[in-house]
Design a protein around this nucleic acid. Structure first.
Lengths: 113, 113
DNA sequence: CTTTAATATACTCCACTCGGAATATTCTTG
DNA sequence: CAAGAATATTCCGAGTGGAGTATATTAAAG
């Protein structure tokens, strides 16, 4: 997983834009209208999303239609797979860890010899 | 989906911490050692992750053992579900949108098909 | 009780980001 | 070509967040 994707999604307005585009492509103006963003902010947020590869644009006349790209979401999903054991199995390991802490008690645990 | 979770994960060092904790709980010192973070940074990043609910701590002697909490990942997974059609079905809708652009806007007509 | 290890907090500095407003660009049409 | 609509870009100021360093806290050990 790359942090760039998460950074782009972490901004609340951009997260809203992404959720809005879930239903289908929209122009800059429509995005701005529905989320009550001024035109420059809508444009700028879409730019960031575009540079992060989350969104792509198609020019039609003097409009730009933005839509979601599937790849980042697929990657995020794959990344989440590596955490799935966290809730699908019981996966705590705290007891195990406490055990290993015990076993190297008197020595410095930072550098086990 | 809440932006707070994404904000916490968006910072590269914190993303690394989360991926490191995937294998099991660790103390602050161990996290710092393995990721080459100075102690205050490790502590501060873990604090942020903790406040975001991504991580929880258990005090043992004068150490704190941090481990992942499943909930945020589960939530993220559910959120991703609403985008799954993006890549599992063909879901473009750009053609549809261009069509609707055609049909309305008598004040801004476009050259017909 | 003093020392030491592990962790947390405070403070400063700097870079980055966001919103607002103005302006520039691009495209279409008359 | 000029005018107007849709979008992009620039500049600014305020706020935020992270790194570095020093210091505080907590608990164990001598």
């Amino acid at each position: 997983m790359n942090a760039a994707t998460l950074t782009a999604l972490a901004e609340p307005n951009r997260l809203h834009i992404v959720e809005l585009l879930r239903t289908g492509p929209l122009t800059v103006g429509e995005v701005g209208d529905r989320l009550h963003l001024r035109q420059p902010q809508a444009s700028k947020h879409l730019r960031v999303l575009n540079e992060a590869g989350i969104v792509e644009a198609k020019a039609v006349a003097n409009r730009r239609i933005y839509k979601l790209r599937p790849e980042p979401f697929r990657e995020l999903d794959e990344w989440l797979d590596s955490f799935r054991r966290l809730w699908e199995e019981r996966f705590d390991r705290l007891d195990d860890y406490l055990q290993t802490l015990q076993n190297r008690g008197s020595d410095t645990p930072k550098k086990p010899k």
